[in-house]
Structure formats: structure tokens, C-alpha cells
Amino acid sequence: MKKNLFPVLAIAALTALALIFPAREAFSVGKGKYKVVAVIAYEEIMGRLKEPSGVFYDASKERLYVADTGNNRLVSFDKDFSYLSELIDERFALPVTVLKTEEGDFLVFDAKAGVIKVIDMKQKKVSLLDMKDIPAGKEKFVPGRFTSDGAGNLYVIDRLNRRIVAVKKDGSFDKVIAPALSASFYGFSDVKAGGGFVYGLDTVSSTVYVFDAKGSVVSKFGVSIDPSASSGGLSFPVSLAASGGFIYVLYRHSGEIGVFDGRGALQYVFSGKGFKEGELYAPSYISISADGLIYVVDGGRVQVLREVE
């Protein structure tokens, strides 16, 4: 008899608790659902990735290219993420960031030399990216990560001058993109472009800047809810991507991906700190392809994720 009463009492107790301590829906942000499509880390012929740092998905050829930086090479994969080939050339080293142009050439940031190089696949030439008539800043131009807007225009982080330099497809100068300089602005650690907007991330101040086609700031917002990592959340943003009107921010220390709307309202968070597939232990770069696949460079692996309903 007593046994039969237990579920009734338990429900009554839970109901009472729910009435006394109502759930704090107004505070909550959903946990995004996602699945792991693929994890690229090791393949018998390819070997093991070593400090990969960038990915580029070529939708027209259905190829994924990974900057396998520690191995001084670019590696390619088919649409099922099976290894295809590698590109190694002593004329570039520590390739950070990779981008394939419409002409089939590759652009890489050579982190050993601190310059952007063009790998001409037809001519088999490697040369410095020719950026013409870049207006001098107060500091020497030291490039960092770069991106393309899909129309061939390039956006290159000018690290010491705390700005983004936009150049047209032919290498000619287009514009300088930068917020007003202040002591709380540390420069950009990542840049992405698309849909007429340019997105810049300042890691140290945990701030995302959204610029319009003219290079004016249209939105600026903080992306760390609590700067204290002790609370566990959204700490040390290192990379960002834009897709479907939302901005995805990747957090190094908390291993999370935060999804914000264009005005900076956090919509939901997914993934988290950990070593298992789908978790992130040392994430450094995020990119999202047109088909919605999310590529995250995480320590010595690239994880391909897809959000699910």
C-alpha cells in the first residue's frame, strides 16, 4: 500500500516545489541541438593533423580544404570528408587560414614569414599577395586572418593598425574598416564577410563589430555574458562566422558556440568543453558553409557539425 502511494506523493512534492520555486524561463537561453557529421583528425595515408588552423569549403567543387599548419601543408577532402590529397611546398610554411579563389588559386597566411601568399596552381608559382595602394597606418602593415565575401573581394586583418583592409578582386585597395580607436579596442582576431556585411571579432574585449558595405559600424556588442570563467560560460571568444542572419561565436576557454542575432542578443549556446566528439577542448576557428555545415578547428582535429531541430 505504501509502495503505491510513493508516485502520488512524489508528484505532489514536485508540484509543490514547482509552485514554490517556479522555473526561471525568463532567464534561460536554450541549449542548441546539433549532431556530429564528421571528425577529421587522423587518416592512414594523410597521417595526423598537427595544429590545423583554418578551413575553406569550395561548394562548386564540393571540396574541403584544411590548413594543416603544424605539418606545413594544405589537405583536401571530398564531400564525405574522405581524404583526397595534400599540397606541400617549401615556398610556404605554417599556413594559417586558407581560401580558394574563383581562378582555383589558394591564398594562405604564411605564419612563419608573416605574409599572405598566393599559390598559383596552374603556373605552380608561389608569390606574395599583391595589395595595391594600401594607405599607410601609424604602424607597419602586419596581416592576419583574412576572408572573402564570395564576390572575390578580400578582407584582411591589419593587426598592428587595428583595422581591416578591404581589397578588390584585382588586388586594388577598396576601403579601410575600423571602429573608432580606443584603449578598450585591441584589434581584430577574426574576420568574416557575407550578405553585404563584414564581421570582426576583438577577442580581448570580447566584442563583435558588424560593418555595412561602406565600412560603417552598424552593430557592436559584447559576447561574453560573464567575463569570469569561473561561472563557466562564454569565455574567450576566438573566432566567428555568420549564417542565416545569425552570428556564431566560438569560445576558446569554455568550448562553446554562442549564437547571436544581428543586434547581439544571445539566442542559444551549443557544444561545450570536453575531448569527446562534439565537445571542444581547444577550439580556435569556426566557419559555416552555405549548406549549413559548421566547421570547427579544435586542437588537432576539425569537427564538422550540423544543427538539428
Binding site: 605554417l94 594559417v96 605564419a111 612563419k112 608573416g114 607597419k140 602586419v142 593587426r159
Partner: peptide
């Protein structure tokens, strides 16, 4: 000094 910042990971950020 500047080339000592070259590497996969770099502290080439600034506010001053």
C-alpha cells in the same frame, strides 16, 4: 622583435 611574433599563435594584439 616583430618576427618573434610570427607563429601559428601570436600575441600581436594591442591597445596602446
Amino acid at each position: 622583435a616583430l618576427s618573434s611574433f610570427n607563429g601559428i599563435y601570436s600575441h600581436l594584439v594591442r591597445s596602446s
